[in-house]
Design a protein around this nucleic acid. Structure first.
Ligand code: FES
Ligand code: FES
Lengths: 133, 133
DNA sequence: CAAAGTAGGACTGATTTGATCGTATTTTAT
DNA sequence: ATAAAATACGATCAAATCAGTCCTACTTTG
């Protein structure tokens, strides 16, 4: 079907780690524990912070910690934070720039794809970080 | 979330076309109608044929036609025929070669991803070609 | 003020995907 | 018979995406 990006995969592992430990952990610590490339994980953590899922503390003794209860964070939100192509097709994204898609004028599957998008969001919306523990 | 490949997009448009017309149509005809690159569409049609979704007739007056009722073909099957990466992560695919994934030994999200895979297949399994008409 | 950490831009290489080309094979119509 | 219209399929090229790395800041604690 559709393969998750490494960013999402690493993000989920990191969130699982944070949720399990319950307090602050550094990117290096998570990277070592999961054998995840450090530099890439660091970026992922920053994205998760911008989305408001985790909090960060700079400087010595700094690191990252959960900002929201694991049960309150669903996969749709994580993927939105970590992945760019958030829609099944370019047809979607209501109010966005449809002109980008060269097929738009001839696309015959706009409505069904919108329906599919909704269903997928439901699927991803139902699973939370709490289910990773 | 996750973007469908052009192959799947073209395949769905083609199946919609065939289902709507109800009889044989050539790849060129579908390509023209949908402004789809002919060579690529031709490959997509061949894949759909191998999957047993459509039938093909060679030679002059040849073309493609539905082999199964549109309501009997769900998107999961179409995607399986047209897309390679059929799983959410490499963890999945029961009985398959896990060794490929370098992370397997350290992967902490195998079970949840398996669950996610199942749910997604349900989502895609519920929508049929009949819903594209 | 030094060490440990996050913040983030820029770059490279690998991989995947879309698109194209070329040639063979099958079948109908003339 | 044979030419034309179509599928079949392998090989190749180009574009886009993604993973990974590097480098330089900024921030905070001890
Ligand atoms: S995919 Fe671009 S408009 Fe449908
Ligand atoms: S993603 Fe490879 S084992 Fe989980």
């Amino acid at each position: 079907m559709l393969r998750l990006s490494k960013r999402v995969e690493y993000g989920l592992m990191a969130l699982q780690y944070l949720a399990k430990s319950g307090n602050v952990a550094t990117a290096r610590e998570i990277s070592d524990a999961g054998h995840i490339p450090y530099e890439l994980l660091a970026k992922v953590m920053q994205s998760l912070k911008h989305e408001g899922i985790i909090d960060s503390y700079q400087g010595v003794r700094g690191g990252y910690a959960m900002l929201v209860a694991p049960a309150q964070i669903n996969l749709a939100r994580v993927m939105k934070a970590l992945d760019e192509d958030a829609t099944v097709t370019e047809c979607i994204s209501p109010g966005s720039v449809h002109e980008q898609c060269t097929l738009y004028a001839n696309c015959t599957i706009k409505e069904p794809m919108q329906k599919l998008q909704t269903r997928m969001e439901e699927s991803f919306g139902k699973m939370t970080i709490a289910e990773l523990l």
